[in-house]
Design a protein around this nucleic acid. Structure first.
Lengths: 109, 109
DNA sequence: TCTATTAATCGTAATATTGCAATGTAATAA
DNA sequence: TTATTACATTGCAATATTACGATTAATAGA
């Protein structure tokens, strides 16, 4: 199969899974951390920074862009990327809400 | 390929990716939300709750257990599951730290 | 115009994931 | 002892993901 049965889950559950999935690869985590670290847009040097081939990086960037977590601006021959603030904040709220659920204090297991 | 080049990333990046990956499927999100909602351990009714076949649920539970996010206790013929509090908290700290990075206020893109 | 540079896309191979039927296993019930 | 019940494991088919070489597209500069 390899195909998730998304229709039996809530929109929220599917959305959490979609965001989590994109963070489920260290290269994408590394790209995002780099974008945060630089504190400005990155034009070009992502391929040198992360140790993967150019088409691979391009593919990871595409997925991040598709989910709206980063923005890409064409600047001459290169492309500048940065975090999409509003969408990142929205995503963060969704994820933190999921992660921050109350854990029952009365032990069971 | 289908194989991540984990060796070129930091331990932290790989750890974030591992946790995120397990949340990258709505069934596992649903299982965890159900465990939180019940606020006690779940013995048995997970297959009825989530709409997937028993072997499929069993497999998802295995992955959650493997990462230490849930505990399973044998209780007669059934098995009771609940959130592994300490590990969940540790995981949450790692993830929130990643999600909560400062976004530069000076616009670039 | 020609060429270099940069990044996206295409094509493809290797591997991973998802889902479930069939089967195995362990504990309780009759 | 023999069901029965509850869950794990196995095996497999369908699909997804990862990675990269080759190519293409677009712009900048000579």
């Amino acid at each position: 199969m390899g195909l998730s049965k998304t229709e039996i889950f809530t929109d929220q559950q599917n959305q959490i899974a979609l965001f989590a999935k994109v963070f489920g690869h260290p290269a994408r985590v590394a790209i995002l951390e780099y974008l945060f670290k630089l504190n400005t847009c990155v034009c070009g040097d992502l391929v040198d920074e992360i140790g993967l081939a150019q088409p691979t990086i391009s593919q990871h960037l595409k997925e991040l862009k598709l989910l709206g977590l980063i923005k890409g601006n064409v600047e001459g021959t290169s492309v500048c990327y940065c975090i999409h603030k509003e969408n990142w904040t929205k995503m963060k709220e969704l994820m933190v809400q999921f992660l921050d659920q109350d854990i029952n204090t009365t032990n069971c297991c």
